[in-house]
Simulated scan of single mutants.
Amino acid sequence: MFDLDALRDAARIIRPQVPPTPQYAWPLLQRRLGCELWVKHENHTPAGAFKVRGGVLYVHELMRREPEVRGLITATRGNHGQSLAMAARLAGLPIRILVPHGNALEKNAAMRAFGAEVIEHGQDFDEARQAAGELAARDGWHFVPSLHPDLVRGVATYALELFEAAPPLRRVYVPIGLGSGICGLIRTRDLLGMDTEIVGVVARGADAYAQSFEQGRILHTERADTLADGMACRMPAPEAFELIRNGAARILRVDDEQIRQAIRILHEDTHNLAEGAGAAALAAAIIERELNRGERIAVIQSGANIDRALLANILAEPAPRIDDSGRVATAAGA
């Protein structure tokens, strides 16, 4: 794993392409949850998600190690692919990106806009990932995994920004896809010598990491069903699982309706757009509202790349209201 000097070096490399994102303590969110709540706005990166940090660093380090690389191949549900497409364009490299059938149309369009060749294959991310590896071996292109030390070190720069800009935090809620975001957060906390709790968040319909965390061993699920495509993982990565098992306080499950509700709340209270995974951390903080009362916490808004039709459907539903005491005034309690 990287040390603090290597992390700061990564921030220096990434900063020209990905300026630091803000972290705000929004008054309406604080009133709604009864605590000092900071939002780390990774939805404000040039690709609309935290993953771009890892993509920029990964390609930078790859070109230094393998300057003769012919092209890149990877698999994604969207944000990982956008980050690599942007980084590949900056490096002058061609890139092919495999996505499962039915992937978000606007994410596919964004990857193509960065210059990527987008190929639909398989029914879910894991099938697309297997095919991408086979295609890379066949054509002699470099296969970019979804989890790699350079990807983790790159995305960890958001954690460095958060911990150094915000006051000391009691806990941070972070969504888990394959694990780079939470791993970067855990490692950065440890390097800074902080005692902040890290709470992972998964979708109830894609809870392989939660099951694995609870059982103390890696478990795969048959399906990954959730509107939060950034968390639709059914096969945890062993290297990520070890760090999460040793460094996270717990992993919470949120269902799709709780995610939808958090998307509406973020829009109403902060006027920020969130994709499903981007709202999951807030959904988990709402679940633990009583635990957090009076505390200083943070949530990672990991991305904003949500299709317009889905967003319009979600925002058409009423957002929860708050009463004069700041408590949620709905039967649902969220």
Rank of each mutant, 00 (worst) to 15 (best):
H60G: 08
H271I: 10
I306P: 00
V118C: 05
F2A: 06
G92K: 00
R31K: 15
E161A: 14
A25R: 12
L33G: 04
G177T: 10
V254E: 02
R96H: 11
Q130T: 08
E134K: 09
F241T: 10
A240D: 04
G48F: 08
K51Q: 02
R308K: 04
P320V: 11
V155H: 11
G140F: 02
A262F: 12
D229N: 11
R217Q: 09
T188W: 09
P149R: 14
E161W: 06
M111T: 07
D324Q: 13
N79D: 11
A240V: 04
A87V: 13
I95C: 02
R289C: 07
A281C: 07
A280F: 05
V39A: 12
A131E: 10
S212D: 12
A304K: 05
R64Y: 03
H101G: 06
A285R: 00
K107P: 03
I73E: 02
R293G: 11
L219M: 13
L29R: 03
T21I: 13
I73H: 03
G294W: 09
T45S: 09
V174H: 00
E120F: 13
A316N: 03
E134F: 06
H267S: 15
H220D: 08
R189N: 09
V39H: 02
A137D: 13
H220P: 00
G115W: 08
A132N: 01
N305D: 07
V118S: 09
I259R: 05
L178A: 14
T157R: 05
A110T: 03
L252Y: 11
A277T: 04
E257C: 03
L151D: 07
L72H: 07
N103V: 12
R260Q: 14
D307G: 15
C183Y: 09
